[in-house]
Amino acid sequence: MSKVRIMSHLIAGYPDDEGMYAAARGLVEGGAAYLEIQLPFSDPSADGPAIQKACSEVLSRGYRVAQGMKAIRDLKVLYPQVPVFIMTYANLAYCIGIESFVASAQESGAEGLIIPDLPFDADEGLNAACEKYGITSVIVAAPSMSAERIEKMTRENRPYIYAALRAGITGEQTHLDESILSFIERVRGSSRVLGGFGISTGQQAALLAPHVDAVVVGSAFVRLITSASAEGPEAITSALKEKMHKLTGCTEPS
């Protein structure tokens, strides 16, 4: 069986700078196909408690967007082979200026942006700016979308679609069933599908993997980072590497 491809989620600056590099190392050495790096926002209304708490801890240190961009640049130097997507909320891109934000994302070496609260048909020029700078703007599709809206979305022909596999927020359990698999087929179009929301076990990842380009795992990693951080950076690296192995199916299943 081929290895499961994982897009793994990290929060810039969490638990601290050193800890974040340690986490990235664990994920990459564990075989991450993509890194999704979240720039913390004060009001993450699509995120569950694990990510909320992590973001507000980072921001309480006065963490700036520019520091997050620099961290991404550093990671790209360390791991040039792993594509990085920046995930954040509309306001961080909008206040700095969509074009300057996209420019600095491109400069940091990111492959693209995931901004769930900039809908693809009201994105404040995000996609146009991304095209100009040669990076991609990833649409987040959701199971509540009407057939009409899915069609409008697939006509965009974006390189990637992020399929949020259930209603709700990050960090809750998702049960994979027929309706989810058919949703993935409906949104695919000509895009590569990144599928996730509530994926935390190797079993779930293996079930989903044949249907997507990569399985997105977010809160499960954030929770591990939180619990390993007391023991220091090495503990973070090894905890994430081990988890990654379970998710990709590269070692014995748990």
């Binding site: 699509a46 809908p119 959701a142 009407s146 949020a164 209603a167 709700g168």
Partner: peptide, 14 residues
């Protein structure tokens, strides 16, 4: 104004 929400909330708002 506008409707800047994650896609999941688009349909309920409609």
């Amino acid at each position: 104004g506008g409707r800047y929400v994650a896609e999941i909330l688009y349909q309920p708002l409609e």
